[in-house]
Design a protein around this nucleic acid. Structure first.
Lengths: 338, 338
DNA sequence: CTGAAAGCGCTTACAG
DNA sequence: CTGAAAGCGCTTACAG
């Protein structure tokens, strides 16, 4: 019942006990050069004994680094964001940096934005779609001078870092894969237009058809919003049409799963009578039946790279290298039977 | 290209412009009583003009509150944790509190634990399974005097808050549901023994059988680890046995989905030839085919409640009220045909 | 390689 | 209802 809160050791406790100045202790904990080996050893020993750790708050107040990075999210949903968090944490933890999650409703949550940006001095901010393309947010970040990295942005924005895969190429390749399996009537379900990747994926699909000399039929293209429900609607649209497609490319795995469900309800066998591909390699892509052929983005690595860009304070404008994607060939595609 | 970082307004800027002392401004921003209305109005007006927000770091250093809460996680995976984060953020944001995510490898990541607890003074910490039952963590938290709330803990720990559903009752009810549908040979796939809920769910299953006067057959009970893969193994064990069960209760939805897949591979129709239930109502439970009958925990609400307990500084030991669970009756259960 | 002083932006503990 | 002073635990900017 010791309700006496044991106070943590401070830098001056360590300095006193080690017989040096605070500044020297500070040097050690900031990995500055020019500390004699014996003093450094002594300081480290004393610090360990006292169980000393620099206070994040004091450092943040006194210095220019806060040891906190933020991730701004629109809404917390899906395993994509979990992977982003994991990727950041993989690097931020060893760097002694804390990850703060801030919710920012899309489109002009200006009040919240000011609140967050003025009350905490983040060492950097990671943005994902769709707010990585929200200029209100980007402008505010720029004005606050906070290093910013955007994962999968739709356009370039001066002074920010960018991490992405080549969505266009990925979409194009998975479409080509279906074409190579013999499909020529390939339906497409668009993603949420709020996300920049949606357009890229559509462009990739169209390009692949075009390159293969296949006609582009508008009634083979259905709108979608990335959600399972929107995928169902699109699937119904596509599958109830006369002369239905022999394959469907859904812009993400949730919608591809919806196509799977609608096909099953209609007694259409997958992949025998209908091939399906998705995008993302979401956690459930491999565990639905049949498992989904899809495109995998290395989300965790991308997020780790995002943190590294922030932390290493790279130069902007260094050539952008897209991260590699990967076609996950599984069981939802077969050659059309006729 | 204004690289001149505009400094944020401080409390003394506001005080000066409003013609009051810093302390009075402080009072307003901390909602203390005893500030005359006209001064308060004036201060608020000036603060708005200056776009002033109290610095989290300065407040944390000077005062006893840090305006930061932490969530300690073992590993960041699955939609359960996403929901917990969302639940906390739903409440922490309006409260002006920031959410920090810290990864703590299970079992004695003492170094990291000290690091985190000594460098930041959290207003509270939220723990989920399995680390909510890690006594090393609990002891350290207790010693640091940090308000702690545990979601779904396996035992009580003095001085901590608890948020949970009645796992035992939930498991028992869903088992009873299958019995009511006519099943008498019901298989069970255990959860990861590291998680306290695993045992509770098993107890609930056993109790329901017992109450119904059904025999408990050990070869109807298979080990599992909550993962899809472990679910596959368990399903194979259960389904390859002679006299296989007519129904299987998997301790979570990932494993239930695995049972679905294995059944499909074996040509066993679900739910006609085999009924399946899961637990959790994970995101994919409703979108697999057939959709899974399962138990839903109000995870988001539970996490919100967790934050509230921290923030409102409730008394410990006030009667614990389990959160309500809900049976989600979907398409994976039917009466056995014989 | 080392340190003394000032200051970061707040709250605390008092005093009135 | 209000405020002056001290202090939270660090880093900064200098000086040596």
């Amino acid at each position: 019942m010791a309700d006496t809160k044991i106070k943590n050791a401070t830098i001056s406790d360590v300095a006193k006990l080690a017989g040096v100045s605070m500044k020297t202790v500070s040097r050690v904990f900031n990995n500055e050069k020019y500390v004699s080996k014996d003093k450094k050893d002594k300081i480290l020993k004393v610090a360990a004994k006292l169980n000393y750790r620099p206070s994040v708050q004091a450092r943040g107040l006194a210095g220019s680094k806060s040891f906190m990075v933020a991730m701004f999210v629109d809404k917390l949903e899906g395993d994509y964001l979990t992977k982003v968090l994991r990727g950041i944490l993989d690097r931020s933890e060893p760097a002694g940096c804390h990850l703060v999650v801030e919710v920012l409703k899309a489109q002009g949550d200006k009040e919240k934005l000011k609140q967050v940006l003025n009350s905490v001095n983040f060492d950097g901010v990671v943005l994902t779609s769709p707010i990585c393309d929200d200029t209100v947010v980007l402008d505010a970040l720029k004005e606050s001078n906070v290093p910013t990295v955007r994962i999968g942005p739709g356009f370039d924005y001066e002074g920010t870092f960018k991490v992405a895969i080549d969505e266009f190429k990925a979409a194009s390749q998975i479409t080509e894969y279906m074409i190579s399996q013999g499909h020529s009537r390939i339906g497409f379900i668009k993603g949420d237009p709020k996300h920049a990747c949606s357009l890229e994926r559509e462009r990739g699909y169209l390009r692949a058809l075009q390159l293969a000399g296949l006609p582009i039929e508008n009634n083979l293209i259905a709108p979608g919003l990335f959600s399972y429900e929107s995928g169902r609607k699109a699937a119904e649209l596509l599958l109830d049409a006369e002369n239905r497609p022999t394959a469907i490319f859904a812009s993400n795995d949730d919608m591809a799963t919806a196509v799977l469900a609608v096909a099953r309800e209609r007694g259409i066998a997958v992949p025998e009578d209908l091939s399906i591909v998705g995008f993302d390699d979401a956690d459930h892509a491999a565990i639905v039946s049949p498992s989904l052929t899809t495109v995998r983005q290395p989300v965790v690595q991308m997020a780790s790279a995002a943190f590294d860009l922030l932390h290493e304070g790279q130069e902007h404008g260094s050539e952008f290298i897209p991260h590699p994607f990967e076609l996950c060939i599984r069981d939802s595609v077969a050659s059309p039977n006729e």
